[in-house]
Design a protein around this nucleic acid. Structure first.
Lengths: 153, 153
DNA sequence: TTAGGTGCAAACGTTTTGCAACTTG
DNA sequence: CAAGTTGCAAAACGTTTGCACCTAA
């Protein structure tokens, strides 16, 4: 388990380094702090979340750097940007072989990740039917979680 | 066919009027122009799109009125607000019995609507599995349409 | 008559950008 | 040293709001 997690992290670093080398980009202290913090994060961080964590280590880092670094990570496919309807962008690590969807509680904002291969298969079928070459998808289920249902009853 | 379209339109108007009456809201000239324009629109309009159309008939209408009217339509469930990742909100008429998803070309921005009951069933199953009461969902497939594939080849 | 609606412009919150100073390779 | 990067503050963006005036009921 641990070994698996470690290997993936190394792969993220490798993919980032490769991308930066290929584009003549530089490895600065700030960039390293932001990317490492992000890679070791869990769930769906806002820019605020990440900036807060990053400043604990490197207090002078500004919004712009975090935005610019996440833009870079999006470009090399290592971060997903998500919008769950509250006007904030949230970022999530794009682990190599992972493709999960989201179940979101509209009362308490809890986010659960799930994977459902049958849905993915049907999505492929739909794309095929229209002749589309599928690149990515977004599936979000909004509802009320068990806890919030209990609270209301 | 025509009759069917007509009936639905009447239903939209009726639902809106009922909602407005119930909340003590008034039927103004501007509101009528915006709602009628919207109801007769197709696809996924931005505020800009709608404002442009509306101003052809009533040149003095401002952004605020269009935003406020669409907010009203969202509240009574007659409009869906969608975000396809370009930072713009798009609005779509919520016909009574319709629940389709979207297939989006990332090259030419073409949007195709589809309905797939099997996917919906699986979504219900997933929600059940986690004890969620499902309220709504969002499924978007992003890919390259046949035309754009041909262009590149 | 009065609660609600409008248009304008200013405010808002998030994200992007121009720029001078500073690093990295 | 040249080209990329940073932090700051200002700008930009879509959207919302405060307010004085207007209008439907």
């Amino acid at each position: 388990m641990e070994a698996h997690v470690e290997r993936d992290l190394e792969q993220l670093r490798a993919r980032l380094n490769e991308y930066m080398a290929r584009h003549g980009l530089r490895s600065t202290g700030q960039r390293r702090v932001v990317t490492e913090m992000f890679f070791s994060s869990q769930g769906h961080l806002t820019i605020e979340d990440l900036l807060e964590q990053v400043r604990a280590e490197e207090p002078k880092i500004g919004y712009a750097t975090v935005y610019r670094t996440l833009k870079l990570l999006k470009e090399c496919g290592l971060a997903y940007e998500r919008h769950f309807g509250d006007g904030l962008s949230r970022y999530e690590v794009a682990w190599a072989d992972e493709h999960h969807d989201h179940l979101i509680c509209i009362e308490c904002e809890k986010i659960i990740e799930f994977e459902e291969d049958n849905i993915e298969n049907l999505q492929d079928q739909v794309a095929n039917k229209y002749g589309f070459k599928l690149v990515r998808h977004k599936l979000e289920l909004y509802g009320i979680c068990p806890e919030c249902q209990a609270k209301k009853a």
